[in-house]
Computed example of a mutant assay.
Amino acid sequence: MEKEYLKSTSKNYNKGGLDTVGLTCKTDVDIEEIKVLNGVIEKYTYLIGVEEVLVTIKASSVLNGGIELTDLDETMEIVEGIALNFNIDFETLSRVDFSVDLLETVKENKKKFILFLECLDLRRKGTGMFETKKPVKQNKKTGNLKISTNRVQTTIYDCMDKPRLANTRIENRIVNIRAKEIIKKRIQLEMKKYMKELHKLEELIPIVEGLYINYLINEYKKTIKKEFGTFTEFVAWADKEQLILTERVLKELLKASGITTRLKVFLNSFRSLRPDTLKFTNKSELKSLVLLVKKELKKSAREG
């Protein structure tokens, strides 16, 4: 009900904050007692080796039933309350998940989100974005858009089926931190690192476009007159697969096909038979998304 009310009264819901934090403590605690504490995630609370326990805490489950992300101060208040009330000495930060929630949907903005992740993955020197899919039993619903390195994962996913105020979450998860410094300061540091990665992210767009252009040209040459009878059929497939991210990608693909039709003419013809197709993202959209993510995370960390 709250989510429907928000949608009807607000054109733009954006909020950054923390989802979970993973903290370690010595084994002189009763793990089973900790697991049932309000705010502790049972399946992510367990023994590490023989000397440490990992305790994973989700402050939002205490403060708002998991509907909204919590800011850094709210999260630390829950952490410190658990530590004080149950005599737990949290020593290190092991994991932190911080996110930005949006009212806009993945379905309507998928190419923009793909471009965001592909550019960020280039900055991290990763292996590329991949997409998970739900099984047939769940109607093959689109899953998550994800990039991953050894210790950092960034995921964009639809959360319309969850009891949240948002429709989309951009989640950044850092694991294996093992920091001995003050927990709050370390969380702020990890958030600053992420925001630094996002600085001038749009400068990587031409490289991402080049990767998609080369892939599509090669696929076109391999499949034309075999799987696809015409260039238009190939473009219809590529667009459905969200591979034509920007107008430049289509322009270069058209040029490589040898077809002499001008881009504007092809677009008009294609869209006349297939309304609401070949929608592109661009540099301006990516810059706006980056600015939004940084702004909301700064607010949640009390950094401006």
Results as ranks from 00 to 15, higher is better:
Arg124Gly: 09
Lys112Thr: 04
Leu120Tyr: 07
Gly128His: 05
Phe116Gln: 00
Glu118Asn: 10
Arg123Gln: 12
Leu117Pro: 01
Phe130Tyr: 15
Glu104Ser: 14
Val106Cys: 02
Phe116Lys: 00
Ile114His: 02
Leu117Thr: 01
Thr105Tyr: 00
Leu117Gly: 04
Cys119Pro: 06
Lys112Ala: 03
Gly126Glu: 08
Lys111Phe: 00
Phe116Gly: 01
Thr105Cys: 03
Ile114Asp: 00
Thr127Ser: 12
Lys110Asp: 01
Glu131Ala: 14
Lys112Leu: 04
Lys134Trp: 13
Cys119Asn: 08
Arg123Lys: 15
Lys125Phe: 14
Glu104Met: 13
Glu108Gly: 02
Gly126Phe: 09
Arg124Thr: 08
Lys133Cys: 09
Arg123Pro: 05
Met129Asp: 00
Glu104Trp: 08
Glu104Gly: 07
Phe113Tyr: 14
Thr127Phe: 08
Cys119Trp: 05
Leu120Phe: 08
Leu117Ser: 00
Arg124Met: 15
Lys107Thr: 01
Lys134His: 14
Met129Ala: 08
Glu118His: 08
Lys112Pro: 01
Lys125Asn: 15
Lys134Tyr: 14
Thr105Met: 02
Arg123Met: 11
Lys107Gln: 05
Leu115Cys: 12
Glu131Thr: 15
Leu115Met: 15
Ile114Leu: 04
Phe113Gln: 03
Cys119Glu: 06
Thr132Gln: 11
Thr127Ile: 12
Lys134Ile: 06
Glu108Phe: 05
Phe113Lys: 03
Cys119His: 02
Thr127Cys: 09
Arg123His: 08
Thr105Arg: 06
Lys125Gly: 15
Thr127Pro: 03
Phe116Glu: 00
Phe130His: 14
Leu115Ile: 13
Thr105Glu: 02
Glu104Asn: 14
Val106Trp: 01
Asn109Lys: 13
Phe113Asn: 03
Cys119Gly: 03
Leu115Gly: 09
Ile114Pro: 05
Gly128Glu: 06
Thr127Asp: 14
Gly126Asn: 11
Leu117Lys: 00
Leu122Gly: 06
Phe113Glu: 01
Lys107Tyr: 00
Lys110Tyr: 04
Leu115Asp: 04
Leu120Asp: 14
Lys134Met: 15
Thr105Gly: 03
Thr132Trp: 10
Leu120Asn: 07
Cys119Gln: 08
Glu118Trp: 06
Cys119Leu: 09
Met129Gln: 07
Phe113Arg: 05
Lys111Thr: 01
Gly126Arg: 06
Phe130Met: 11
Lys133Ala: 12
Lys110Ala: 04
Asp121Gly: 03
Leu122Ala: 07
Arg124Asn: 14
Glu118Tyr: 08
Phe130Gly: 07
Thr127Trp: 09
Glu104Val: 08
Leu122His: 09
Lys112Val: 03
Lys125Glu: 15
Thr105Pro: 00
Arg123Ala: 10
Lys111Asn: 11
Arg124Tyr: 13
Lys134Asp: 12
Leu122Lys: 08
Lys133Gln: 12
Lys133Leu: 12
Asp121Val: 02
Gly128Trp: 06
Lys133Val: 10
Glu118Gly: 05
Glu104Asp: 15
Cys119Phe: 07
Glu108Leu: 03
Lys110Ser: 06
Met129Leu: 15
Val106Gln: 04
Val106Ile: 06
Lys134Thr: 10
Met129Glu: 03
Lys111Gln: 06
Arg123Thr: 08
Arg123Cys: 07
